[in-house]
């Protein structure tokens, strides 16, 4: 069966695209899926660092596209997780080294050998973003609960709709339930109301995310991390499982407001 191709994007920078890509990739691998993740942020690569595979890079995506190596040679196998591969971005080039057609061709070449292809998109709405969504069958838009990130997400969703990649699904990252309670942060339902697309997950603020990013060990590998649990839930929802958001709600006694708008399987 051919792999499902998913691009993770946001518009605004720094909202957690790379962290989410790494964690969903690992979560899928932990569920026994074969996953290839692709860093399409040419010139500003990060996914290798977050996955802790930085020192294993020999060839990168641009080497494949320009014919300096075979695609197999650029696929870095993650020894910790069965079936997980990374195709890193080139660090010394820029977005113009790759075209949307190159991306489509690249994905087509590896499609038969894996179950999932996850593409980490660069920030912005220019060439790099266009490259990242060109091969996508589904797009996950990630945002933070702040006004500027939501505004950018709205713009991105509009572009995805006009490229006929839609309907995109939404990840709300770094929700801080205490701040929401005090009325200092947009609640998930405020974000949902404006963006009007389906939600696939909410990631609570969790300092373990930063710690694990720095040591190249995605937070999803922490059994006890609440953010890790949220990423595992997203992976299972991608597989079609019906996972209510209640998981997180029960553990920390939060998200009472969210559970009302977030009604999986009850449509």
């Amino acid at each position: 069966m051919a792999a499902k191709i998913i691009t993770i994007t946001s518009g605004k920078g720094g909202v957690g695209k790379t962290t989410a890509t790494a964690n969903i990739t690992v979560a899928l691998a932990q569920l026994g899926q074969r996953v290839v993740c692709i860093d399409s942020d040419i010139g500003l690569r990060n996914l290798d660092v977050v996955l802790g595979l930085e020192n294993r890079i020999v060839y990168d995506m641009v080497d494949v596209i320009e014919g300096r190596c075979r695609i197999r040679q650029a696929m870095i196998k993650d020894k910790r997780f069965e079936g997980l591969f990374l195709i890193p971005a080139a660090q010394t080039r820029d977005k113009s080294a790759v075209s949307p057609s190159d991306m489509i061709q690249l994905c087509n070449e590896i499609r038969k050998e894996t179950d999932w292809i996850l593409i980490d998109s660069p920030a912005g709405i220019e060439r790099g973003f266009k490259n990242a969504i060109a091969p996508a069958e589904e797009v996950l838009v990630i945002t933070n609960p702040d006004v500027s990130a939501v505004r950018d997400a709205d713009r991105i969703i509009g572009i995805i709709e006009s490229e006929e990649k839609g309907p995109a699904r939404l990840i709300i990252n770094r929700i801080n339930p205490e701040m929401v309670k005090r009325g200092e942060m947009l609640a998930a339902e405020d974000v949902m109301e404006l963006l009007a697309i389906e939600l696939i997950g909410i990631i609570p603020e969790d300092e373990k995310v930063l710690i694990s990013t720095n040591i190249g060990k995605p937070v999803v590998t922490h059994e006890k991390s609440i953010a890790g649990q949220a990423f595992r839930n997203i992976a299972r929802r991608l597989l079609g499982d019906d996972i209510p958001l209640i998981d997180i709600e029960l553990k920390d006694g939060i998200f009472h407001r969210i559970s009302r708008v977030f009604n999986f399987g009850g449509e």
Binding site: R151, D152, D154, R155, G158, L194, A196
Partner: peptide, 20 residues
């Protein structure tokens, strides 16, 4: 959605929201 500019000679009916 944000970033969309609709310029139309005539009347416009939107069945949906007009976002910031």
């Amino acid at each position: 959605r944000s970033g969309t500019s609709i310029k139309y000679a005539g009347n416009v009916i939107v069945d949906g929201d007009v976002n910031p």
